[in-house]
Simulated assay, not measured.
Amino acid sequence: MSGVLMLAQAAAASELITEATAGQVTVLEGEQVKSPQVVAQHLAVQPELVLIDATVDPSEALGISGWVVERFGAPVVLISDDASLGLQAMRAGVRDMLRVTSTPAEARDTISRNRRLAGSSGDAVHRGRVVTVASPKGGVGKTTITTNIAVGLALATQLPVVLVDLDLHFGDVASALNLEPEYTLPETARAALAGDPLALKPYLTRHETGLWVVAGSDDPVAADAVTAQEITGLLRTLTLDFAYVVVDTAPGLAEATLTALDLTSDLVLVTGLDVPGVRGLRKEIETLNELSMLMETRQIVLNFADPSRGLSVADVEATVRAKVDVAIPTAGIVPISVNQGIPLLQSRGNDKISRQLDQIVGRLVGRPTVETKRGLFSRRKESA
């Protein structure tokens, strides 16, 4: 199962739901549940169903339930053997209750029933955001920026994030992350045609930061066989299970890139500080505008922003007729990071390059302001 979020208070409830869903559940526990910011980040992707454990502290669980329903409109099932909580749960907007002493089969039925009810209420199936990173020419550090964006999103949000290498012939995302994948893009794209996120998961490679990766193909012939239909199916299926699908593309506007752009919600355009690259970016922007693919949710990233190159940020902005959102300077720390296969944002350094990369991530996340726990949860407790 996908799209199920659980806020756990005790191991018994967590074990029940994990077994009932065959592990297809996101479980928050301990300090995570006590952090409104962490909970809000997971609710922001609109899970199909939220399970809230009330076996230890019913008052806190009811307070969180009311906040989840009021603030995010998510359907809630309360886990408790205490039938006397029924009226308070109803007042908090809880849709159903599940006994912690239920069998896994009974819990599975309750979860499935409430997910069907949520779907039949007219709520659209939530899909994650597709973040596509593109550039008009190679050699501008696009893959380095892309891997840092993906790692940064995974670490900053604690949400499920997947990185897809769509540079069909020369993709090196796996190398940039020091990974040795068992499966690559061709096998993963074929598996995605079934449209089942659960069946797709074994084809993904897990990075130590929690990021999932669809690695590029080592075989150019096999990569040539990947169709636009398979790419569409892959990205659509991934958006069912991941809050962010980050896509690294080949230079230019190849068919695979255009296919990804059809599904893109956030676009990051990268250029270096050189005349061919800047002029190429202007042409790419003009082309995307003509194709109605130049979305407003875009960022322009200027890499290798070194004044000694004879161009300035103002020169770039005048040429592309758009604002540069993030300018990343040249530094020796970058090639060291690339050669080690450890993205700078994985190291969480405070150098200037990392801060600029973090700006890109921050613009994608939006850095929402989250109230204190008392401000979010206590209102429900007081009125329950």
Rank of each mutant, 00 (worst) to 15 (best):
L153D: 02
R108P: 01
S80W: 07
L85K: 08
G128H: 13
A124F: 12
V131P: 08
S80Y: 05
R108C: 00
S120I: 05
S120Y: 06
D81P: 08
A154L: 06
V94C: 11
R116D: 02
I149V: 12
R127I: 00
A83P: 02
A154C: 15
G139D: 08
H126W: 14
N148H: 11
H126C: 11
G152K: 07
P104E: 12
T110H: 02
G138Y: 10
G119V: 06
R115D: 00
V140N: 08
V125A: 09
L78K: 03
L98P: 03
R113G: 00
T110S: 11
L87Y: 02
L98N: 03
D96C: 15
A105Q: 14
T132C: 03
S112L: 15
S121L: 14
M97N: 08
R127Y: 03
V130W: 07
L98Y: 00
V94F: 06
R95I: 04
L87R: 11
D81G: 10
I149N: 08
L85D: 12
I111D: 00
T147W: 04
R95H: 06
R91G: 02
A107V: 01
M90W: 09
I79G: 02
V125P: 09
I111G: 01
S102E: 01
H126P: 05
A89Y: 04
I145M: 11
R129G: 12
V77S: 07
I111N: 02
V130P: 07
L98D: 02
S120F: 05
S135N: 13
R115A: 03
E106T: 13
D123I: 13
A107I: 04
S84Q: 11
M97K: 04
S80P: 03
K142E: 13
D123Q: 15
L117A: 12
R95P: 00
V133F: 02
G152Y: 07
I111C: 09
L85P: 13
I79Y: 00
A107S: 07
N114D: 12
T147R: 01
